[in-house]
Each structure stands twice: as C-alpha cells, then as structure tokens.
Design a protein around this nucleic acid. Structure first.
Length: 337
DNA sequence: CCCTCCCGCCAATCT
DNA sequence: AGATTGGCGGGAGGG
C-alpha cells in the first residue's frame, strides 16, 4: 500500500468524526463535487485520468465520498470508468450524447422482481446510485412531464422512480429521497439542474437546466434585459426562484401534456424561459417520438425538442465554470454576499 | 420540529 | 484473502 498517509495532506482533515468545527456546508456533497470538477475539468479535449485515491486525498475526503460523485457523473457522461480505481474524464462535450442516449432509451422502470428469472445480480444494479441518477435525469429528458422548464419535487421524483407499491412504504420512500438528495446535489454542481422552491408550498423542487447555461455577459441579446440575478453559484448557495406550484403528489397524467409554460407566477422578475437562444441552435427535430416506457404512466412525451449543441456552446460553458468558481470562491472568503 | 444529508458501517464483488 | 465498490439509514446540523 504505502498510501503515504504519513505527512498530513495539505488539505482538511479527512478522518475526522462529525465533530470538527467545519460547518456542514463546507462538507457538502455539492461543494465536494464542485471541487472535484474544478480539479479535473480540462476544457481542451485532453482526457485526463482520475485516480480514486488521488481524488480523495486531494479533496481531503475518504474514498467513499468519491464514489458518490463519480457514480452519478458517469451516468451523465462526464466520466467513464476505465479500470479499477481509475476513471477517465470525458468532459462536458460528452454530455449531449449521453443525454440523447438516455432520452432514446426512455424511462424504463426496472423490471419488477415478481417474474424475473435473472439473478439477484440485477437487483443490485437496480438500486445503484448510478441507475437512479440516470432515471432521475430521464424524468426530465424523456417524458413531457417534467421536461424543460418544469420542475419536480423530491417526493414526486421519489414516487415516480419507485414502484407504485413502494411509494406507499414510508421507509422505502425515505431511503429513496435520501438518495435523490445526493444525486440532485451533484447534478446541480454540474448545473444540469437547479434547486428551486415552489412559491406557495415552499416545497423544494428541481428544475432542469440541461446545458442551456446562460452566462451573464454572454449573448446580451438572448436575455431581455437585466441579465444579472441569475448567476448560479456552486455548491450550497441555491438560487431561490418562485415557480409554479406542483403540489399534487404523483398523478397519472395521461394526456400528452405538451409542457406549456404559462408561468404566470407573477413576481419573478425574470422568467427563465429565454431558452435555446444564445449559442444554441434549436433545430427542431420532430422525430424521436417513440420511447418504450413500459408500465406506469409514461405514455406522454409531449414536446420532443432536441437542442443541438456546438463547440461554441461548450466553450461558453467552461468559461461559465471559471466564473462561477471564482465567485463562489470569493464568496466563501467574506462569507457574505 | 422538519428538512437536509453527512458519515461510515459493513455487505457484495472483484482481484 | 484482501481490496474495491457502494447500499443504506442513523442521527446530527441547520433553518
């Protein structure tokens, strides 16, 4: 082994108990993920290797935490497992394809055990964070249900990702929700989703951002006017935006709901709907209307739009990251907006 | 009090 | 057998 654990690493304590005066936020998964990203994100195509132990020590955490991050990032295509202890950084350029695949794959709630003859080998995969993460993403990418600018609350997501039966089981639900928190946190770090709070219920929910990242000084003509106030920062600081309520718990919804966004929620001085404009080319491809969602209520998949991304866009994305990172960093210092 | 979700035990798998 | 992976949920921190 010789994991050179001798001299204390330059970072924080790694084997501390839950004591230590480090605040919870400073140890959050999202933050860790952001750090992870800034550590390995290379904008040039160069694919770097990521060693689990290396990452863990450089980030000052135990291996276990790295798995949490890596598993969901892999589901989105940012990473790929190369071999034992090693992952390959694929980069943001790999996301579009990964999403596309997920979309075509369609949300397929794992075949229930009942009549399965496959080894319990599958049940393992069935519960994996990776799969759950992908399914969570599909919730947005596939059905016309939560697609685009709609949002899903924690409970909705959990219920949807669980069998109808299980969603009744309090314990099972609780566990599922816990996992979704984990997933959502890393996905927000990557800016694929955003946490919001519904105006009335105040219940937290997640909204899909995809790669439509809008950087401030980007394409001034894509945003009506005031284009500040939307600087999403990394980690903990979550933008608080009022959004339409989505109170009703699970609901079948069987009409192809064509996500209309009549966001008449009022106050929000800036509705996030100036979507695919900037550097993104909409490219309406009316096809891809088949998704094999078996069972459950997944027959609706309204708007089937498929933005096409281009290098330019990715370029922007990266600069966005540096910006966000920078702002977050300074924010941490003076600990005050 | 309830929402978040960190933390690390330890089981399943892989070498 | 030892090393890797990673499910899982107790229970603490924070609003």
């Amino acid at each position: 082994m010789a994991s050179s654990a001798a001299a204390a690493p330059p970072l924080e304590p790694s084997t501390t108990k839950r004591n230590s005066s480090y605040s919870r936020k400073q140890k959050s998964l999202s933050l860790l993920c952001s750090n992870f990203l800034s550590l390995y994100n290379r904008d040039d195509g160069a694919t770097s290797l990521i060693g689990l132990d290396d990452a863990a020590s450089r980030l000052g955490v135990v291996r276990r935490r790295i798995y949490d991050i890596v598993n969901v990032l892999e589901g989105v295509g940012l990473l790929a497992r190369k071999s034992k202890n090693t992952y390959t950084w694929k980069g943001f350029g790999a996301i579009p394809n990964a999403l596309k695949e997920l979309k075509e794959e369609g949300l397929d709630l794992t075949p229930i055990p009942t009549c399965s003859n496959n080894p319990l080998d599958d049940t393992k995969r069935e519960k994996s964070l990776a799969l759950l993460a992908q399914n969570f993403v599909k919730l947005f990418v596939c059905s016309g249900f939560a697609a685009e600018s709609k949002s899903i609350s924690l409970d909705e997501a959990a219920k949807l990702l669980l069998g109808v039966g299980d969603s009744q089981n309090v314990s099972v639900m609780r566990t599922k929700v816990r996992r979704i928190y984990d997933i959502a946190n890393v996905l927000s770090s990557v800016n694929l989703i955003e946490k919001i709070h519904t105006a009335d219920t105040g219940k937290p929910a997640y909204r899909w951002l995809g790669l439509n990242v809008k950087t401030d000084d980007l394409h001034p003509n894509s945003a009506p006017n005031s284009d500040r106030s939307k600087r999403r920062s990394f980690g903990t600081d979550l933008t608080n935006v009022s959004c339409k309520r989505s109170k009703v718990a699970e609901k079948p919804m069987q009409d192809q709901g064509e996500v209309d966004e009549s966001n008449s929620d009022g106050p929000a001085k800036e509705s996030y709907k100036s979507y695919q404009f900037g550097p993104f080319a909409p490219v309406a491809v009316p096809r891809a209307r088949r998704i094999n969602m078996n069972k459950v209520r997944w027959e609706s998949l309204g708007a089937s739009f498929r933005p096409q991304y281009q290098n330019q866009a990715l370029k922007e994305l990266f600069s966005h990251y540096r910006e966000a990172w920078k702002s977050w960093n300074s924010k941490l210092l003076d600990a005050s907006r």
